[in-house]
Simulated scan of single mutants.
Amino acid sequence: MIKEGSKVKFDYTLTVDGKTADTSAGRGPLEYVHGAGHIIPGLEEELTGMKVGDKKTVKVSPEKGYGKVLPEAIRRVPKEAIGGAENLKVGDMVGASNAGHTFRAVVKEITDKEVVLDFNHPLAGKELTFDVEIKEIN
């Protein structure tokens, strides 16, 4: 039975807005330590007490998933501050670093002088649906 400190392997399919966003199919089960904060809180809570072979569909709210969309995480950046800005398109993913931390952002808008970048997690503000099957517990 899954409890604090259990090493768990599980298969999953993540559905967001009716589309498959991620799956362990073809890659093998995801492995994590229960209670260590390796997976989002809403999913971890729902896996507590499950046994090998158990299957479950779990709905996770944004608050217990990747959080709400934070307006302060959307930034307007001068085009000249971004290398290769002339090649960017809306929807592109770009990387940035600050004080040794690397961040990813999605290009939301491009004007003559600026690029609007969204540093929110791509799944922020989304309800997540996980179909899980527990494969192994140690």
Rank of each mutant, 00 (worst) to 15 (best):
P41T: 12
E136A: 13
G91F: 09
E63Y: 02
S97C: 11
V8C: 08
F103Y: 15
A99F: 11
L30I: 02
D92M: 11
N87H: 10
V33D: 04
V94F: 08
V94L: 10
H38Q: 15
L43T: 02
E133W: 01
V52F: 02
K68V: 14
D92L: 08
G18R: 07
L70P: 00
V116E: 03
A85P: 02
K19A: 10
E45R: 14
K113H: 14
I2F: 11
F103D: 05
A21M: 10
K89V: 08
K9Y: 06
D11S: 14
F10M: 13
G125W: 00
I74M: 13
G100A: 11
K56M: 13
V132G: 01
L70W: 11
V58Q: 02
I110V: 15
V94Y: 08
V94R: 06
I82D: 10
E136C: 07
E44A: 13
K89H: 12
E114Y: 14
G125Q: 02
K113I: 13
A105Q: 04
E31H: 05
P41H: 09
I134E: 04
V90C: 07
A105D: 00
I134L: 10
V115A: 04
S24Y: 01
V116I: 15
N98S: 15
K135A: 10
V16A: 04
F103L: 13
I82L: 14
V106W: 01
V33K: 03
P29D: 00
L43E: 05
E4H: 11
T111F: 03
L43G: 03
D17R: 08
V107Q: 05
E114R: 04
G67M: 11
G83E: 15
E114D: 15
G28C: 06
I137K: 00
G100K: 10
L117C: 08
E109T: 04
G125R: 04
F130P: 01
I40E: 03
T13Y: 01
K135V: 14
V58H: 06
K19G: 01
N98W: 15
G35K: 06
P122F: 08
L30A: 00
A96P: 01
K79Y: 06
K126T: 07
A25M: 09
F10V: 05
G26W: 00
D92Q: 09
A81P: 02
R75I: 13
E127M: 09
I40M: 13
T15Q: 08
M93Q: 13
E31S: 09
L30G: 00
D54C: 06
K56F: 06
N120Y: 08
G100Q: 09
T102F: 14
I137D: 00
K64F: 09
L117M: 03
K7T: 07
F130N: 01
G67N: 10
D112P: 01
V116P: 03
V77M: 13
I39R: 00
G37E: 07
T23M: 10
L47E: 05
A36K: 11
E133N: 09
T111K: 03
T111G: 01
G5T: 12
M93V: 15
V106N: 11
H34D: 08
P71A: 14
D17T: 04
L88V: 12
I39G: 05
V115N: 05
M1Q: 13
G26I: 12
A105R: 02
K126A: 02
A124L: 09
I2M: 09
R104K: 12
T23K: 02
D17A: 05
I134K: 02
I2C: 07
P29T: 05
E80M: 14
N87A: 12
D11L: 11
H34V: 06
V132T: 03
